[in-house]
Amino acid sequence: METKKKYVMVIDTQKCFDCKACTIACKMENNVADNSQEYRNWVETGEICGTFPNLTQKFIPGQCNHCTNAPCEKVCPTSATYRNEDGLIMIDAEKCIVCKYCMVACPYDARFVSTTRHVVDKCDFCYDRIKIGELPACVQTCPPKTRTFGDLNDPNSEVSKLLKNREYKVLKPETGAEPNVFYL
């Protein structure tokens, strides 16, 4: 489905220092329950690798990738998971029967059973905010601005410029899901 907008998230992991601001801001904005199994976004704290004193550690922010070829959308038996007019993968709470097929299908482990919304929830790029021209909560709150959000169909957007000028990759390209979260 061609859409007018193509919203993407570009993540510069070099900047991320694992402060968890994005996770907490998201929980507040989207009323995600305060427990360690429910979160729409996260920062994966990598293991400390190597042998003292030659060590490295990575911090990788993650969330729903709003895949162009979304596995979760395909397996949903009730069409509760659908693509909206702006190309985002959304959830119709009325239709969701919490069968969890989508949780198993998602290559990014981005979906969870929400005890506040009673659906299998996930990131919606803060759709209520972007509709009125605000940034997603995680992007807005991030201290070093690790995340950049925007419309890839707009050649003048920050995300278009970043993906034009910098090298990037996506996670798990082999699944064919065509994710829309890009890592610099």
Binding site: A21, T23, I24, Q140, T141, K145
Partner: peptide, 9 residues
Amino acid sequence: GMVCARGNA
């Protein structure tokens, strides 16, 4: 233009 995890909580 930021609020950290603590500020959010």
